[in-house]
Amino acid sequence: MNTQESKTALITGASSGIGQELAKLFAKDGYNLVLVARSTDKLNELGAQFWDEYGVETTVITKDLSEENAAQDVYNQVKDKNIRVDILVNDAGVGLYGKFATETDWEREKSLIHLNVLTTTLMTKLFLKDMVERNEGKILNLASLVSVTPMPLMAVYGATKAYINNFTQSLINELKGTNISVTALMPNATDTDFFNKAGAANTKVTENLDDPAVVAKDAYNAFIKGAHKVVPGSFANKALEVVSYITPQETLAERMRKSMEPKDEPKTEEKNNTAAWTWGISLAAVVLAGAALAVLYTNSSEYDKLRYRYKARKLKSGADDMFGDVKESLLTGLDNLKGAVSTAKEVVAKAKETFADAVAKTPSEVEEAV
């Protein structure tokens, strides 16, 4: 049943991966679709599938979005067809693997920047202007968890995602007081064709990839509610985002570099260090969340204190699960736990400065930060 007859979602990069999974979710909820990608056959196939399963109309626009004026051409085609875009999903993007100075090709990097930055920016500008005139609309921009970390061996890609995240958060502020929401999607490494196309299929990061269907589901649920950002997937993903704001950039760069190196068998010490880092950021995130809740509780009304006690119970439950996992890891070696505690202490020490002025903030400001 089509429950959103007058609503249309335009999705770039819709032929595969996260974009395709998002298209399925919009179709299931009755949104008509405008699907944009380079593969005409695949988009037509998806359109036929969505019509058969959900009764929604699909418009296919075949376009290489890394080309000059690609965004303007897509916008013109949409206007010529008299389609009103209520939701814009800027999902299309590419990466490139290798050392910037000696291994990567400038023409490919220029194409990457055009697609990830210029096209996304112009698509947003063109369709956002129409949304502002109607005072209604939603935009989802694909950033990444690497938008808040360095990314050695994919330096240009990481820089483009930092731009998208910053751009999105700035628009959120500019659009306060309107009925328009903009959301940054910040997934961790996901099981799509991205790494293969980027020339990074043999890197360690591909040994532990998130499911694109799970990423899309988490993203969709948060986006529809108007969230400013969404970090889909596990607690560890969310912990990584929080801790990235307070961990020294040199430390983050080193960890990211290791994850982007080839898959040669790591030494036992490296495995332990990786486990320590993972548990360390999780432990630190629990401490930081607890500290923030404590500040909120102290500065809140009786009604809000009830809400924060409930949040504290949820935090404790999550922490209990995590510490249970840490206890289990003792079976494989005490070094992991020792390293985790050491990492957590280092991160929390840095966090003290970050939360030093928390008592001066309003509860809403602290809650937004968390």
Rank of each mutant, 00 (worst) to 15 (best):
A200L: 01
E109D: 15
T120F: 05
K129L: 07
G93P: 06
G158D: 14
H114W: 04
N165R: 14
V205H: 01
L171H: 12
R108D: 14
W106N: 10
Y97A: 05
I87D: 02
M154F: 06
V146K: 03
I87H: 11
L153G: 04
T183S: 07
R84F: 08
G177D: 09
A159L: 12
N179L: 14
S170V: 14
E174Q: 12
V146D: 08
F167W: 14
K176V: 13
T149W: 10
F127M: 06
P150W: 14
E109S: 08
G95Y: 07
P152K: 03
K129G: 06
L140E: 00
P187Y: 09
F100P: 12
G95R: 03
I172H: 14
K110S: 10
I180D: 10
A201K: 01
L142I: 04
G158V: 11
F167P: 12
Y163D: 09
V85T: 06
V85F: 10
V94K: 09
T120C: 11
G177L: 12
E136P: 00
S144G: 02
A155M: 10
F100M: 14
S147R: 00
D91Y: 08
E136G: 02
Y157H: 13
K176T: 14
E109W: 07
H114P: 00
L115K: 04
S170M: 11
L175V: 13
N188M: 13
F167T: 08
T203M: 00
D130S: 01
L153Y: 13
I83P: 03
A92C: 07
I139G: 01
M186D: 11
K176F: 09
R108C: 08
A143N: 05
V132L: 10
S144Q: 05
L126V: 05
E136W: 09
F195K: 00
Q169W: 13
N82A: 10
S170K: 13
L122M: 08
G95V: 09
A189R: 04
R134V: 08
V205I: 11
E107I: 15
K138I: 04
Y97V: 09
F127E: 05
F194T: 02
A159I: 11
K161I: 14
M154E: 13
N82V: 07
I164G: 06
M186N: 15
K204S: 01
V156C: 06
K99H: 13
G95D: 08
T168Y: 05
D130G: 02
T178E: 11
